[in-house]
Nucleic acid binder design. Structure first.
Lengths: 107, 107
DNA sequence: ACACATTATCGTAATATTGCAATATTATAT
DNA sequence: ATATAATATTGCAATATTACGATAATGTGT
């Protein structure tokens, strides 16, 4: 065994876990933060900033992108990523609803 | 190599990743939800409820406990876990602060 | 102290994630 | 069309996570 048994859990719980996974690595946390700080963002800049190889950064960007958190456009020669605020807010809502629900019967 | 390079990131970003990791597995999401629903919680009940082995549930509980989210007491013969609301709220705040910060320059 | 029930830990196997070098792809500008 | 720069993908190695059976440890009640 060893693989996650995602099929035994509810849709909502799997969704929460999926969202949390995006933020479960400091590199991705840092990348998202960096993108949010720059008006137009370029991958090579991130490589310099974060201190991981271009390949690794690109991989992390894919994870973030697959979660639907990024919109990308080419601006001149370079790729400009920006954070999809709608998706980010949705993520925040999902997490907060879970946090609030989980507060019942706490101590 | 393959191991996470946590040393190259900021303290705050590592903290966020650590918190998110707790919720990054559906079993842990489900366990926390279950504990919050029951007034007094017993591990064996969780095993029946979630559908994973006792050893696996115990492992997940350790992860949640190590994050500081659980308080445990013995009630009669059985261990009663409850969610530490203070810690949970702290986690929620950390995540929300990050969400809010990350909304700058989004699109 | 002893039996019983519950929870934790150990050992092991399978899968997933992380990271990088090398290579391929893509887009822009000339 | 070609050269150039930026980004994505591939292949591989190392580490981490997930899961479970077996066993150990812990606490309760008699």
């Amino acid at each position: 065994m060893g693989a996650s048994k995602i099929n035994i859990h509810t849709k909502n719980h799997n969704k929460i876990a999926k969202i949390a996974k995006v933020f479960a690595h400091p590199a991705r946390v840092a990348i998202l933060y960096y993108i949010s700080k720059k008006e137009s963002c370029i991958c090579n800049d991130i490589v310099d900033e974060i201190g991981l190889s271009q390949a690794t950064i690109s991989q992390h960007l894919q994870v973030i992108k697959n979660a639907g958190l990024l919109k990308g456009q080419f601006k001149g020669k370079r790729l400009c990523y920006c954070i999809d605020i709608k998706k980010l807010n949705e993520f925040q809502d999902v997490m907060n609803r879970y946090f609030i629900k989980t507060q019942v019967n706490s101590c």
